[in-house]
Computed example of a mutant assay.
Amino acid sequence: MSDISNFVTALEAAQKKEKYTAEVQTAAEGIDVATLVAAVAAADAMADTATVGDEAQAAALKAGFEFAVKVVMMLTSAPGPFEKKDLYVHFKVAKQEILEKPGMFDMVKKQLFGEWEKIKHFTPQKSQAIYIQHVNTLIGKYGTRDQ
């Protein structure tokens, strides 16, 4: 079972309106923490191409992902390039966005495209859970700003 305690602490603080911007607090509204934790654990345990069967868990996972997208902007320091790469490719898969193959001389985009190609078969739910886990790690590493 995956530990997302840093993420849960941030989520609960946003729900209580103790921290973060109004936009982040709004993204946190209505997310059932227990259902989200169960959904991340279920997605973590499932195959890359499987989906979470429970509708409540699927909805909590999607809402948790949307919150993660907002709260990652509240980190005290910007993540490193490798951390950003992981966030980027899982964000794209979670949103079901398809990357265009970059030109021959665009090395950064070629690297991102290569990493995306490795996981493009993941279900959006699997990538949402992995994104949440990455954000959890980044919150633990960098901490978050109050505003």
Rank of each mutant, 00 (worst) to 15 (best):
S2F: 05
I4A: 08
T9F: 07
L11T: 06
L11M: 11
Q15N: 13
K16H: 12
A22R: 15
A27C: 04
A28C: 11
E29Y: 02
I31T: 05
L36M: 11
A38E: 14
V40E: 03
A41H: 04
A43R: 01
A43Q: 10
D44G: 15
D48V: 14
D48I: 14
A50Y: 07
V52S: 00
V52I: 14
G53V: 10
G53M: 12
A60S: 13
G64F: 08
E66M: 15
E66Y: 09
V72D: 01
M74I: 02
G80E: 09
K85A: 08
D86G: 11
Y88G: 04
Y88H: 07
V89N: 03
H90R: 12
F91Q: 12
F91Y: 14
V93F: 07
V93I: 14
V93K: 09
K95A: 15
E97V: 06
K101M: 09
K101G: 02
G103H: 10
M104G: 05
F105N: 00
V108W: 05
V108Y: 04
L112H: 05
F113C: 00
G114R: 00
E115Q: 07
E117K: 14
E117W: 05
E117I: 03
H121N: 15
F122M: 11
F122A: 04
F122P: 02
Q125L: 01
Q125C: 01
K126F: 10
S127F: 12
Q128L: 01
I130H: 08
I130Q: 11
H134G: 05
V135L: 06
V135M: 09
I139T: 09
